[in-house]
Design a binder for these strands. Structure first.
Lengths: 157, 157
DNA sequence: CATGAAAAAGATAAGCA
DNA sequence: TGCTTATCTTTTTCATG
């Protein structure tokens, strides 16, 4: 099913996850090849799903979204239908960037990005706390962020 | 200092954060304009820092990184030099995707992406727990992920 | 913001190791 | 099969009105 990545493939992925505007020519030069094989490998990586998409990374704060909050949630029931319904509702909120089911102190960990504390409170009151079967809710307000990347470590794959 | 985004700018940002391979031509068509104003706006958005970069989004699991863990950490001291040293060390670990200083139950919340539980344990033993002034460490192992995006909600900016 | 031309990049094809 | 070289097409980029 899944085609195996060689060294060159991972090098290409490492380059593109840092900067997808790099031309095939410049990548080829860096890897000591010509453009065609690089081009074909990239197409293959896209087709096989190793590359999911290409996106512009925006500056949250510049566009007015200055607050990141992580929210740890426990539910009052754990039946399958509860969980599915909860996830569906959560995913529909545009403020929610991530929703993970976790083991440990919480059932779910959410990452939310909003304008400010006011907007967060509005979200809590008018959206989150209206969900049924909601148990405990703990907020971790981000004070500052030292690192925040989508790049994944390809050095060992 | 900061130039104000109009409706068209935010539309362009919304399009590019979903798919940065869209041509200016196709964006122009969607917005009912010609290519040059769209082109100029994009350049401006890049120059002003609204667009930080363009990246390829990879499929973590396909490249062999199947486990995401959030780690809540408290430190044993809160002096400024402690915090700075801690953040510097953490940021150098390639397994760490995010490092946030938070208020609430923890001092720091980390997001880590690794191969599997073994790799996570190795990280804990050979890297994280070697840091001095480390207090309590709580792991939230991701069981499944309902939503995980970098797209931010531009509907209200 | 429109037009249009030059430069660059993307994409494809024929042939070689 | 995977690379090279060469060619063609599309997009980007920019000057001018």
């Amino acid at each position: 099913m899944s085609y195996t990545l060689d060294k060159i493939d991972t090098q290409i992925l490492a380059i593109l996850q840092k900067d997808s505007n790099r031309t095939t020519k410049s990548i080829a030069k860096e890897l000591g090849m010509t453009t065609s094989p690089v081009f074909e490998r990239i197409k293959k990586l896209e087709k096989e799903g190793y590359i999911k998409k290409y996106v512009a990374v925006l500056d949250n704060k510049k566009v007015g979204l200055k607050l990141t909050v992580f929210i740890g949630i426990t539910l009052q029931g754990h039946t399958r239908s509860y969980l599915e319904k909860f996830v569906t509702e959560i995913n529909n909120f545009p403020e929610i960037a991530e929703c993970h089911r976790v083991s440990g102190n919480y059932d779910y960990l959410l990452k939310l990005i909003v304008e400010d504390i006011q907007a967060y409170e509005t979200f809590l009151i008018s959206k989150l706390t209206l969900l049924p079967y909601l148990g405990n809710v703990q907020s971790l307000i981000t004070l500052s962020t030292g690192k925040e990347t989508n790049e994944i470590d390809l050095s060992r794959v």
